[in-house]
Design a protein around this nucleic acid. Structure first.
Lengths: 171, 171
DNA sequence: TATTGTTATACTCTATAACTATA
DNA sequence: TATAGTTATAGAGTATAACAATA
């Protein structure tokens, strides 16, 4: 971090231009922004993520889904409740295990998901508008390398996660 | 967002590689990571940010500082309380306005700040380890362009902010 | 005895509004 | 009447543990 004070002429108290600060700042800002643009679809970012995972493998139990997304079982309940009350997913009976619920996306859920994904693509375009030709791919490549080095898996967002991430502690 | 399902062969339910997702994921992960590495300094990221701003312009009132960082006055109280209890900053009397407190960094605060900034620089180096020669500058340039397009000011972290950010709503 | 889903409880964080002492 | 700081309260979000039904 080329922190304030160690660069002559830099205003003390300003974090300056560091990757860490910018990632943190942009991450928080974009999460909120995405939350906002998703409102017309009637979904929050978390519900969007869960809806995608349900659609990706229908019939899963809540706990199985929660394990993929690293969400505690007790949290899944309210999350699925919301989606079910909105008529986007269904809890069906699992014929092989009467304890478990099998999760399915409804037709309405599929339409909502489709709309939300269009919004997501437009949002991505908005974010990348300041980038020049070809820079988006380069940016993604760099960010993916940083994510991989921190042991972040491709599909799981930390905001959803219950447990601590597999950070590197060798510094 | 090149969302799941619109790319043939992509596993549905996976957000895929988008700038929006990666920023959000890395932002959250790095914020937590930074929180963790900062523990030995006895500071949280927010307190670190405040300490820097106090050091950057000593004698400021709490409200003035809160306006710079976009923190509500009532939140500032507890934040400054913590720093004062830790012996890192002092609330002195403002000779010109007996309502206001003038904030100053103690010697201990200066040593803590110095230690925290070293940690911050090491953290930045850790983040950027997967990048090749010269890529860090390019990454910062791209991230700054994205931040600027969203109206984010250089020194203010959204996590600290009370009010809504000046997002673009033209999409 | 272990597991699925659920509920209840407590804890953290923060936003809001009321209050005091000054101005 | 307005402002600086403070306090109190309420709300959201989330983690933890206990629970009933089933395996």
């Amino acid at each position: 971090m080329s922190a304030a004070g160690d660069t002559p002429g830099e205003v003390a108290g300003q974090p300056g231009a560091t990757v860490g600060f910018l990632l943190s700042q942009l991450g928080a800002a974009n999460a909120r922004w995405f939350h906002e643009v998703l409102v017309p679809a009637g979904l929050g970012p978390r519900q969007f993520a869960i809806l995608r995972f349900v659609a990706g493998a229908e019939g899963q139990s809540q706990n199985a889904l929660g394990e993929s997304l690293q969400i505690a079982p007790s949290r899944m309940v309210a999350l699925i409740d919301e989606l079910e009350e909105g008529g986007l997913v269904e809890r069906r009976h699992n014929p092989h295990d009467r304890r478990a619920k099998a999760l399915y996306v409804t037709d309405k859920g599929r339409r909502t998901l489709s709309r939300a994904m269009k919004i997501g693509m437009a949002h991505e375009a908005d974010i990348c508008r300041p980038l020049h030709e070809g820079e988006r791919e380069l940016l993604i490549d760099m960010l993916q390398r940083i994510a991989a080095a921190q042991g972040l898996t491709a599909g799981v967002h930390p905001e959803l996660r219950t447990a601590e991430p597999p950070f590197r502690h060798d510094h």
